[in-house]
Amino acid sequence: FDFQFFDDAQNLYETLKEKNALYGLSRLVATYDYPYTLDGQDHFITEGRFHLRWDRSKPQEKLPWAERPDTIDEVGSVYTVQGFDLNYVGVILGPSVLYNASTDGLHLDPARYEDSAAFAGRGGLLEPEQAKERIMLNALNVLLTRAVRGLYIYAHDPALRARLMALQAKAVLT
């Protein structure tokens, strides 16, 4: 299993396209942290020199998003890959996924999560923030468990990205 962290989203995408050319069924996905509305317009994810559109809704297509060859040039979400096994998956951890140095762990910020529909109807809960975090963790679980041959990860948060790259460098040395 090929498991790598990337410090550049464009490099991740280029590596993923190479894997797709060799093995097929390789796709890029992201946490729902970038603006997207169902208004018929293209919406983009930009991370440094990386700039690619979110998945396009094509209800007339017979194949699902994860299986269409043209979707290597789009970024999918939890909604486009749930239930699919893919050969290689690139995951962009967006602004809601942060590094907490004091715990050396992840911190989720629901205020930065753009999927407001995922939080609909949560107002009557006793602990709505914890429910939102569980929803976000479930979405992360879906994104991070689609890969059969390899998983590539890029983090928007500079501190998280630096920590992941340091862990990868340490693993290479041992």
Rank of each mutant, 00 (worst) to 15 (best):
V75R: 06
L125K: 13
V142P: 07
E18D: 08
A21F: 00
A166G: 12
E129Q: 13
K19Q: 13
Q82G: 00
K17W: 00
D42W: 09
P69T: 02
A117I: 05
N11H: 11
L38M: 01
Y88T: 01
V75M: 03
A166K: 07
Q168E: 14
W54C: 11
D70F: 08
A155E: 13
R122V: 15
G90N: 07
E133K: 15
F44E: 07
W54T: 03
G40L: 12
T46E: 15
D157G: 12
G105C: 07
L144R: 05
R149D: 10
K19D: 06
E18Q: 09
T145Q: 13
A118W: 06
L38D: 04
P128G: 08
R53Q: 09
P110L: 08
L106A: 11
D2L: 14
I135G: 10
E127H: 12
D70G: 13
H107Y: 14
Q10L: 14
Q168I: 10
L28Q: 01
A9Y: 05
L151Y: 06
Q130T: 15
L52A: 08
A101C: 14
L126G: 06
Y154W: 00
W54I: 05
A30N: 07
G40F: 09
R27M: 08
I45Y: 00
A111L: 13
I92G: 01
R56Q: 11
D8L: 06
Y154H: 01
S57C: 06
L86Y: 01
Q82A: 00
N11C: 12
R163L: 00
H43G: 11
A159C: 09
T71E: 04
P59R: 09
A9R: 07
Y13S: 15
E61Q: 09
L151Q: 01
T145E: 09
V81N: 10
F50L: 03
L63Y: 03
L140C: 10
L126C: 00
Y113D: 03
G123Q: 13
A30L: 08
T145D: 08
T37L: 11
L25T: 13
E14V: 14
Y79I: 10
A131Y: 02
L12H: 03
Y23I: 09
V142L: 02
A159H: 12
G90S: 13
G90A: 05
L98G: 02
L173H: 01
Y32G: 05
I135R: 12
E67R: 15
D33W: 06
Q41W: 01
G76W: 04
R161W: 03
H156Q: 06
Q82E: 00
A66R: 10
H107P: 03
L22C: 00
Q168H: 15
A147V: 02
A147I: 03
A9V: 01
Q60K: 13
V89A: 04
E14C: 04
G94T: 01
S26C: 14
Q168N: 10
L22I: 04
V97S: 05
E114H: 14
N138R: 13
P128K: 02
R56M: 12
Q41K: 14
W54Y: 10
G40E: 12
M165P: 03
V29A: 01
L125C: 11
